[in-house]
Design a protein around this nucleic acid. Structure first.
Lengths: 346, 346
DNA sequence: CGACATTATGGTAGCGCTAACATCGCTAGC
DNA sequence: GCTAGCGATGTTAGCGCTACCATAATGTCG
């Protein structure tokens, strides 16, 4: 079977074999691959033929070793589930690929203890850039990161939030501002007894910031004490939303609006409201966060906060590329903002 | 700043530097890393101290080149959006990481023309395994794959469906059987005029198989002509579901059930039904596919088909590892099945 | 038409690591 | 006390590629 396509030997063809077949030196083959313009067309054609005949695919590890360029960018996100980061990763990958880089992906699944191990594994690949979603890093991880970016010049981008003290660069939006804006928006709409349902575990930094924004808006407008319910763990599910609304209503039965820290939570809240015969938004307004697919007019018609997920990915890639090209100095923080989307639940 | 942690030199510490500091040869350092049991404890401690002091992180590319083992597994999925593959990738990554491998991720975004480019890029990394979600490959891509698995012994796993002619191995379930089972289930429930709304573009192989299963079930039970509406492109959104139901109802106003090719479509259909004042399931039953988060009791309470997404990932990793260990011969196809979940929409 | 600037190609030397074998020091056995 | 045998460590030789410099082939002009 071997030899059907390509060659008979063991393993992959090497550049030397291609060179021999084309009657040139390995160096010329290398140039055909990387700077075709610098090789005479006739030679180039010959080399390209040899490449095709042998089914040659250059060994990236050898190339990386020799050139000290891995053409690899590592992205470490907390999770892929819930479609939160998916579009960001897609955008990141698309831009990167166009520039000839590949994406090495790691998920920490919200356990920051495994973050360090993952980081070490990934750094061993000598990535040309690092993308991180986590808000807080273990001290050891932070040290590794500092060293990578400060000492070794590896660009690092933290995404989906704007850290006070970025390791290097950051692309995202202010969860605090978004939380405050939506709460203020609800207040402007006339709602007075606004509750908050979110994930308030210590690991979910972003949820915490949204909640802080909510409280801030309440205080600014003198809307009384916060009415917040935080589902614990790694929540943020539809069930958590239903439970959250139930808990809130039990404690503060007179609420006229609930701001949920994520669209799934809002979904759960709406379903729970329906179960209780509460008209939305007539008797209870509901707002979400994220503008998931199903939040649109055809689905929930949810009033929510839209986050430019894919743009975060693309912008991150752009920054990485710019910095590698030396066209970017110093710390960079890009605020891509957010957008309040009013639909029919508030 | 350099030297804060680790060393002052340019770039990363090398194994040779660690060796010098510990007063041993590089080979001993290598052994401490890979087979600590074969190094005397006192020596090992010394080496480990040197590693820590220098913040040494071994260069995986060099290791790969020398050992001809990349410890990299590449996964090529059509998309990350819609949370379809997310849990599979998470499961895959988790198991792989435990075994000391990393995940190289590529998304084709349903364009099979870019699949070949992606495949080439990824093969350059000499992955120890390949995971693919696409059903059909371009001839060139297929040739590359055949060569990789047949000629070079790279394990390949196709996931989320069971191809008739697998490249190497496959882990998934039968979309045909699932489509048929849900349709038959609806029939058993007493529904007689069952429509289908799905993505029927030529690129979505899985949707096509589900649709085929639907037709088969209809034929088996003599339920008359199929009533199918396929949204074209890369659809599968909530909007497509709403539009799909509208189209179906216009053409066949007497439908008593709709089977949707995915949960988002089902969501759209339910929303559209509500808009038209149709009681679900009283006047119109709706079934979905996928058992997304929001399909649960707390949300849509959707009758749907549950797919073991994460298990597919884990099983895939297991197969890859097994085959690499030489404990697995010949083609392997693992059918992980599916589960009909009856909730309150049918 | 020969000196010179170009352009095209080749040779050499490693990148950082590990497989395979060589060597050393030690304990065990008689 | 000598050697077989073992465990611990070192030496050598690349893995496949690219930077860098050298050389050869081509073109340019007085």
């Amino acid at each position: 079977m071997a030899g059907d396509n390509g060659r008979d030997g063991e393993g992959w063809a090497t550049m030397g074999e291609v060179a021999a077949r084309a009657g040139v030196s390995p160096m010329t083959v290398s140039r055909v691959l990387k700077e075709p313009g610098r090789v005479r067309p006739t030679t180039r054609t010959r080399v390209e033929a040899a490449i095709a005949e042998l089914g040659y695919v250059p060994d990236a590890a050898a190339g990386a070793l020799a050139s000290r360029q891995s053409r690899l960018v590592a992205a470490l996100v907390s999770t892929l589930a819930g479609s939160i980061f998916a579009s960001t990763i897609a955008g990141l990958g698309a831009v990167l690929r166009e520039a000839g880089h590949e994406l090495l992906l790691g998920t920490t699944e919200y356990s920051s203890s495994s973050e360090e191990a993952l980081l070490r594994a990934v750094l061993g690949r000598r990535p040309g850039g690092l993308v991180l979603s986590a808000g807080q890093h273990t001290p050891a991880a932070r040290r590794l990161l500092e060293r990578a970016t400060r000492g070794l010049g590896v660009p690092v981008v933290e995404i989906w939030q704007l850290p006070e003290r970025p390791v290097d660069m950051a692309v995202g939006f202010s969860n605090f501002a978004a939380g405050r804006a939506m709460t203020a928006f609800l207040a402007d709409l006339g709602y007075r007894r606004i509750a908050f349902v979110g994930v308030l575990g210590p690991d979910d930094f972003r949820g915490l910031r949204r909640h802080a924004g909510y409280r801030e808006a309440l205080a600014e407008r003198g809307l009384g004490e916060p009415r917040a319910f935080g589902s614990g763990g790694s929540g943020g599910s539809v069930e958590d939303g239903a439970r959250g609304l139930a808990a809130v209503l039990e404690r503060w039965p007179d609420c006229d609006a609930v701001f949920c820290g994520s669209d799934p939570l809002a979904f759960g809240a709406i379903a729970e409201a329906a179960r209780r015969g509460l008209a939305v938004p007539g008797e209870l307004a509901v707002a979400g966060f994220g503008d998931f697919d199903y939040a649109g007019e055809a689905g929930l018609a949810l009033t929510t906060v839209r986050i430019p997920g894919e743009r975060i990915g693309r912008e991150t890639a752009r920054l990485l590329l710019e910095r590698k090209a030396g066209r970017l100095e110093g710390p960079v923080v890009v605020d891509l903002g957010f957008e309040l989307v009013r639909r029919r639940t508030a």
